[in-house]
Design a protein around this nucleic acid. Structure first.
Lengths: 88, 88
DNA sequence: TCAATATATAGATATATTTCAATATATCTT
DNA sequence: AAGATATATTGAAATATATCTATATATTGA
């Protein structure tokens, strides 16, 4: 787990919102995700990729769709590690 | 507390290291802090300012020195809020 | 096979960030 | 008062990031 990479991924309003939406909705397609933003499709794709690259989201191919969801295990691990690194 | 601003402040290797040093040492001057880096004095001053501006560090004037320390209350609050916003 | 839909990638532009050298300001010491 | 030390600010350069349009790729359905 790359703590810094995950921190950078989270330090952006759009990506933070993506995570929150995914946490609330469970598993949704890219197009459904795009519906929550006024940003363009490539921009949402770009941000999703950054979240995927640091491991924070899963992507499951389902036909022409990609179903995105949060990697809750890693998210928990990140929150725990952040606390351990800084506070303990 | 500005969650995004704090997240951005933490999402940098130098600033993360500054926080860790301050957590370990308690209260130290800027010059002592600089000793832990190969970066220039203005660069460390710049990063310290970003941490100060989001509230994560205190700065107490002591003669010609500025004594820096972590705002542990806010750091704890941040870690709690981050978890609440994302996980709950 | 062809058109439509979903997602990804490329390339360009605008903005933000990191860094340093130079300089300013404040305080201490002699 | 003058020199030394500590910190902050300015201005510039290099790099990174966010965003868009245009286009590519993949999949579905008629």
């Amino acid at each position: 787990m790359d703590l810094l990479k995950i921190s950078k991924a989270l330090a952006d309003a759009t990506r933070f919102k993506i995570l929150k939406i995914l946490m609330a909705k469970g598993e949704i397609s890219c197009s459904e995700l795009e519906g929550h933003f006024t940003l363009s499709q490539p921009t949402i794709s770009h941000h999703s990729k950054i979240l995927f690259d640091c491991g924070l989201i899963h992507a499951k191919k389902d036909g022409q769709h990609s179903l995105l969801s949060v990697n809750k295990k890693l998210l928990e691990k990140y929150l725990t590690s952040l606390k351990e690194e800084l506070v303990k």
